[in-house]
Design a protein around this nucleic acid. Sequence first.
DNA 1: CTGAAAGCGCTTACAG
DNA 2: CTGAAAGCGCTTACAG
Lengths: 342, 342
Amino acid sequence: MADAEGRRRRATGRVTLADVAEAAGVSPITVSRALRGERAVAAELVERVRAAAAALGYVPDPAARALASSRSSHVAVLIPKLSNTLFVDLLDAVQHTLVPAGYQTLIGVTHYDAAEEEASLRNVLAHRPAGLIVTGSERSPAALALIQGSGVPCVRVMDVGREPGGYSVGFSQADAGRAITQHLLDTGRRRIVYAAAQLDPRTLERGAGYKAAMQEAGLASAVHHVTTPEPSSMALGASLLVRALNEAPKTDAIFFCNDDLAQGALLAALRLGLAVPRRLAVAGFNDLPGSDQMVPALTTVATPRRAIGEEAAQMLLALMRGQPVPAPHLDLGFQVVRRASS
Amino acid sequence: MADAEGRRRRATGRVTLADVAEAAGVSPITVSRALRGERAVAAELVERVRAAAAALGYVPDPAARALASSRSSHVAVLIPKLSNTLFVDLLDAVQHTLVPAGYQTLIGVTHYDAAEEEASLRNVLAHRPAGLIVTGSERSPAALALIQGSGVPCVRVMDVGREPGGYSVGFSQADAGRAITQHLLDTGRRRIVYAAAQLDPRTLERGAGYKAAMQEAGLASAVHHVTTPEPSSMALGASLLVRALNEAPKTDAIFFCNDDLAQGALLAALRLGLAVPRRLAVAGFNDLPGSDQMVPALTTVATPRRAIGEEAAQMLLALMRGQPVPAPHLDLGFQVVRRASS
DNA sequence: CTGAAAGCGCTTACAG
DNA sequence: CTGAAAGCGCTTACAG
């Protein structure tokens, strides 16, 4: 079959590699190599192939490519939740650097659950992704085996890693928890409570940092946790505030594991007529949207989730291209942002 | 080549249809049909095939399936932004119903930009998705042509549609804008300002609803818009509040096109010592997280974005399976949520 | 540096 | 209701 211009067309109507090859007067394999920028193609041919591809409007078929190479142009990203701004920011940054490089993101939502992570992993791995980004270091043996067995390069995000042969981009959650607690100590607070929800591993690490700072300051006896496994929310922050003050009436500062809790607590303080920071200092974590607008503005820890997403994507890009990765474990740090609430 | 159990294995190590066929003692095509639940396979064979597939841990290869059928197991979702909770909720709901049905979501972020939408469309369409979900009805002729030319079933979300042959799930943005304005009128407000950012089509429709309500109330002369094309944020809400009061000092109510603006305005009012709702009533839109926690709690319009995502996904599922869609245009409505700010 | 052959793992017509 | 043949559009070794 031939169309008006005499080109051979398939039943699907798609312009294929073969069409480009014919137009450029070379073999399909040469087109494949030229377009992928593989070495060992004469510059003049590359030029001709590119021109022919552009003229025909050729778009490579990801499915055919995936089938032939047994590696798709997908990168799977496993995150706990989409309702948490933190992970959406991360995802956005990942997409921002991966899409221009020709990759498409596959999202797996794990809901902080090992079984769901496994199911999600099986699901995305079936698509034979070229790369994988997973959140945190907690993972079931089965999930670990799935990743290893797949041979798909994997970068871990959000915390710091050290294991040889692994790749990670993040920051020390414990150090950050310690730093914000230290800030509260530095401003004269002594009876500091750590209030946390969700209780995922990173939340617990922040709590460990808090505890370490308190102990170093000789305040081990004042260490007090107010926690709940429920998902984080502003409303929950309000109730954690009340709980903290009930359990430890002399509390003079609360460090919340996430800004939404802290924002909710700040608004609750407003309703209760509780003076912040005079009576009670409040600190949050992550510097989420709105924290700078609170009354008073919320002291928090700014976390580099966008940079984490970009760096993880870059690292994965190198791994997928078989390029060396000079620093397999990246610690991007954090920043204590002092505002009026402390 | 044969492994320990005498099965034939490919170079890739994957368990294939052929392996299952051999184990079940049928032809590959029968396995294919049995597993996809296609009619015209004897019940007994289906049983045998299922058992064999389960025993071997067979996972169909999406790439091979896509190549052979020229339709992938992807559903592409085009949304304006990931930084807007609204769209993330929508996306989450879509994934929630599509993933269990065996589809994976491909995200395209358009940044409210026609050219970016086109690029995004080209990008996702190259993956030959089985279905497509797009936001809103504004679309360049080129984008429209891409969708039509692809032959991929497409459902539009967020606003209401009517066009024959099309599919949509949403609610009337204009009616919602009119309803919340009417609520403010009903509570005695007269000098009501519409404050908006981003100025995407839906924001403009809400503004049209506001204007219609004002005109019907004989308050055409009081119609006042305070707008900016900048992206919506809490900080911007604070500055729109100030602008509104500067431009129209007698303003007694402001309807913000989105809750983040309204939340920012509420906090600014707190800082400025502006009494809400006594001096000024404030209303928002979308009922975003935190609106119920504000001081005072924010009056707003609850929008059914999760339901929209689920219904759109269900509709797409029917379309992709070639099943009839009884109601191609679904209006899911909205709800005025009266709280203390009005 | 370039190409002919084979194959990736499925499904789509076409038979029977 | 079941199957043998062909093909989807690429890339991977293997030659030269």
